[in-house]
Design a protein around this nucleic acid. Structure first.
Lengths: 210, 210, 210, 210
DNA sequence: CATGAATGAGACTTCATTCAT
DNA sequence: GATGAATGAAGTCTCATTCAT
């Protein structure tokens, strides 16, 4: 059916023209915020568009659809966060120091990057293939483990870490961070570095060779 | 001879009650399965009713609405799982042994109760108040921490555990378990007890007084 | 996301409860009218629902979706029309008389059943599988040809019809009827029986054995 | 030596014109193919532009809008096809021979011009005014009838055709052709000339004066 | 002029929830 | 009390059309 043409809308906001990438960022930002505010299944593209201050249709101009937006959002966020942690670390330091520093950094990010982390988690735990299987979970963490293990093994080789199973340790480490972030998020009055330090005290005390 | 068997032994009300309760269980079971199969969004009450083999309207007889069903499902599942862990533990044993046993038990449940745990997580991470705030997460874990801390403090008092921060430890402990369950779920070929033992080795080695 | 409950709508029309079949007929009728009025791609389920005086959602309660509604509409209409032609014919009459009667009947239906025939044609020419191939065309006509051929062969055997190719004749016959109906539709002032008779005169004169 | 070859021989305007016309053809060609592939609804100007290898906006430079493109496409296609039939006919031959030749020609075109004919039909049956009435159907055929009738009357005057109603015959003739084309399209294994000849045998046998 | 980013109306569809039977 | 027909709000997505660049 032929659509009826839309009348010129009088005045209103001028039509902006940005580069594709800029629009994507704008929309992804709005998506991250919505995700943090209303959760994964509370997210509606209508609201994302409204929050980004663009028309609904633009979302399908920049992304394939909802899933693509979610996946792009996750990817972009992961990159941002990972860089922020990795770049701040001095990888030549003794392994225990690196770990402690990483925990502190993660705790700090849990505050400053609260929304991004929340959004990322929501996508990770909800976005799924048509067949029902999750789309990102496995990949997301799975990619992180090897790097962690490498670090742990270096510590073991250097004699600063004990002889634990590095894969199990990597998994546990992730779980500890996730939980810490959740807890810090729910308890804004707690000092992040403090929590991070106490967390670091537990395993490091144990795994540091006496 | 005590009673004529021809007369139903319970009162009408009692029978009602039983029926009512049976149906609730029936519906909750179906909800758990759907949740595990299709995720939180993706769940529709129509399908839940169909899977439970009851009519759509019955859900509103037994529950206030969708949110109530979700909350009831979460509560029921938590109770089931918690009991299964707690009942299997010998709380008079030395604390490190209790912890190791609890981890093993949790790992085992991650296999046998896979569906329930998945469903519980999905509700926990998605069900929220109209204003967007989560309805269960905080509360759920928050209730567990004191009991854990109590256990840890006993261990510290008895000299079997080191001087770590018990609250941070409780949080970390939860995170480690959650992550272990997720990992075991994604890697069915891994032996749960093995993973649990390796996990127990890490902190116990550290926190056991040398 | 939990939908917000709808407030009771004050008064308005009372909620009707009919049997599934009655509703289907009601909706199909509206679909036929819309199809005739606005054409296939001008048809919107929103308008069909409005015309039928029911809520939009009811359409998905009674049918699988748009395609199902279209297919059901076609099937129902075909049945109606075919019956109206077939039932009015005396199949024991000489074949030429049957043909002449059928043409008259078809012409008459072209007037009384105008909308149904139009609607049927629109569906037939437009409803297609996801891969782009038409869904009904072939089947629709293809089912009619054998019966026609049978009739023609009987006429040939009885010596009242000439030795033409019966399949080609059946196809041509259909085409002649379709075109006649289109023409009569566009020229309401023309007497249907008159046109039908003139049409019958052409081939019958030729194929009746002299 | 006449002109320096280094200077373009046509004027700027003329070049423009050529470009403009080339692009119209390019777009119309793409529209025809899309129409044949996906049907009338299912056609989107975005895809037409893509198939034509031009930008979306260009369509509104060359045409008023979708309806204009459709109408132009129909007109252009009609012209092409009609010419192909008319030009191949020897109008001085006896009328029955002309008819037979025209049918053969039409049947052949049904194969070689398959796409164009399909597209034309789709537009014809679907393009309509905002009020819902068809935009082309009536007109299209209506213009053909007089010429046909003229031919038939010549045959009647020359004594090679019988005394049938020429208008009804013209209508029937069109219907027979349309149906033949549809049938040949659905049954590619059938020889077009064969079908055309069998079709010609039917009425010609009847209307040729005995 | 041409391009394609941007818009907005409207299509189909799903689903929690209500309520006549 | 139980059923499932009916509703209506909201969601995802498509597309003709406009217009800044």
């Amino acid at each position: 059916m032929t659509n009826s043409p839309s009348r010129p809308s009088g005045s209103g906001t001028r039509r902006q023209r940005l580069h594709e990438e800029q629009r994507r960022v704008q929309i992804i930002t709005a998506a991250v915020e919505e995700l943090a505010d209303r959760g994964y299944d509370g997210l509606s593209l209508t609201r994302v568009a409204a929050r980004a201050g663009v028309s609904k249709g633009l979302i399908w101009h920049c992304f394939t659809g909802k899933d693509d937006l979610m996946e792009s959002t996750a990817t972009a966020t992961i990159t941002t966060i990972r860089d922020q942690i990795a770049n701040s670390l001095d990888l030549t330091a003794p392994v225990p120091d690196i770990i402690r520093a990483a925990l502190r950094r993660a705790a700090a990010l849990g505050v400053t990057q609260r929304v991004e982390i929340t959004a990322l988690n929501r996508i990770t735990h909800n976005l799924r293939h048509p067949d029902g299987t999750l789309r990102l979970t496995v990949g997301t963490y799975e990619e992180t483990y090897p790097a962690q293990e490498l670090l742990f093994r270096r510590g073991q080789a250097e004699g600063t870490l004990g002889g634990f199973d590095t894969r199990v340790m990597a998994i546990t480490y992730q779980g500890a961070i996730d939980m810490m972030l959740g807890y810090l998020g729910a308890h804004p009055h707690i000092a992040p570095e403090d929590h991070a330090d106490k967390l670091a005290d537990i395993p490091l005390a144990g795994i540091r060779r006496s």
